[in-house]
Amino acid sequence: MSANQSLFDNHGRKINYVRLAVTDRCNLRCFYCMPEEGIKYVGREELLSYEEMIRLVSTLAEMGITKVRVTGGEPFVRRDMMKFLQALCSTPGIEKVNITTNGTLTAPLVPELKAMGISSVNLSLDALDPARFFKITRRDVFPQVMDTFEALLHHGIDTKINAVVMDGQNTEDIIPMALLSKDHPVSVRFIEEMPFNGEGSHYERLAWNHRRILSHLQAHFPDIEKVPDPPHSTSYNYQIPGHQGTVGIIAAYSRTFCGTCNRIRITPKGMLKTCLYDDGVFNIRDIMRAGATQEQLRDTFLQALGNRAKDGWEAEKQRTLNHPIQESMATIGG
């Protein structure tokens, strides 16, 4: 394949976006992501090295990938992350490098992130009430996260706020979170809770799905308007009249956006996931360490994308009976 060639799966969906998890470690213990005692972290030798990740991204860029989102765990707990991000931004064919972070360590780094050309940052923030924030994250770091929010705005980095809506945990914060879009040019996105918390589903049914979240917003903002969604958007996007920013709802559990999915995921250990809900297709790390050529890497990716599930429900159904969903989002890449 030549550079800039388009990459498609077996359902005709263009694939141009990779979510790259650089670590499974995190300095928070969010209720919806991992148990309070944490998870068994991957050993350093099991992680993809920075050199391996740059080779991987370079190969994907030759095949048509143009956008990379760096995730974790929390990306900035890994040493030398800024050097890696600089190398990633310099990779031929990569047009956008975005980051998802919990914001606890990020504020001092924002000027450098801006200078290297980071396109946007997704800031995980599930509550504006410090007490609820502490209850959800099990850590007292709310001021540091808000410092990051202010720094991102000050330096003009495109910012999205990601809030997972959890019954009995933070539904009181939905309206205050939406009001962040009034005076700030941010996108506040409310996400359905998923069972990737290291334990499995917390509920027999999803109490706050995308429809209920929208109804709640409409009750408080009767004039809220639907706005066009960008191509491949995972969120349904809305504008509240008079607000600088927008509000979005991500049906992450309901999986209503699968038909336009343009992304693949690489876990910290190098496992390719062609869907968030599958249990992994093949391990890229092992193939590279076994001496695979660039052509062999490309052929392996093409084979995986040629057998991709049509949606998250099919991907979950194809998981073996011995592997029900119970992994932590930190081991997948948020």
Rank of each mutant, 00 (worst) to 15 (best):
M1Y: 12
D9T: 01
N10C: 13
R13W: 10
Y17P: 00
R25T: 07
N27P: 03
L28T: 04
F31R: 06
F31Q: 09
M34F: 14
E36I: 08
G38I: 03
E45I: 03
L48D: 09
L48I: 01
L48P: 06
Y50G: 02
Y50E: 09
E51Q: 11
E51M: 03
V57K: 09
S58I: 08
A61P: 10
E62S: 12
T66K: 14
V68P: 00
R69Q: 05
T71K: 05
T71Y: 13
G72Q: 04
E74W: 09
P75I: 03
F76W: 08
D80P: 04
Q86F: 12
S90Q: 15
P92S: 10
K96P: 03
K96N: 15
K96T: 14
T101Q: 06
N102C: 10
T104C: 07
L105Q: 04
T106G: 07
L109Y: 01
V110T: 01
V110N: 03
V110K: 02
A115R: 15
G117Q: 08
V121G: 03
V121K: 02
A127S: 08
L128P: 07
D129M: 12
D129T: 09
P130H: 15
I136T: 00
R139S: 11
D140N: 15
V141N: 14
F142D: 00
F142N: 03
V145P: 01
A151Q: 12
L153R: 05
I157K: 06
T159P: 04
T159Q: 06
I161K: 03
A163N: 09
A163L: 12
V164E: 00
M166F: 05
M166H: 03
D167I: 02
Q169K: 11
N170L: 00
T171C: 06
I175R: 11
I175Q: 08
L179G: 02
L180C: 06
L180T: 01
S181I: 10
D183M: 08
V186P: 01
S187Y: 11
F190Y: 13
F190S: 06
P195G: 00
N197A: 11
G200S: 04
N209P: 00
H216L: 13
L217Y: 14
A219Y: 02
A219D: 10
A219L: 00
P222S: 10
I224F: 07
K226F: 12
P228G: 00
D229W: 07
D229A: 13
P230T: 07
S233F: 05
N237H: 04
G242N: 05
H243K: 05
Q244H: 11
Q244L: 15
G245C: 03
G248E: 15
R255C: 07
T256Q: 15
F257C: 04
T267G: 04
P268M: 09
K269Y: 11
T274L: 09
C275W: 12
C275T: 10
C275G: 05
L276Y: 08
D278P: 02
F282K: 01
N283C: 13
N283L: 06
D286C: 12
I287S: 07
I287D: 13
L297R: 07
L297Y: 04
A304F: 05
G306K: 02
K310L: 12
D311T: 03
E316K: 14
E316T: 07
Q318L: 12
Q318Y: 11
T320Y: 08
P324A: 03
P324V: 02
P324C: 00
I325E: 09
S328Q: 14
S328V: 13
M329S: 00
I332R: 11
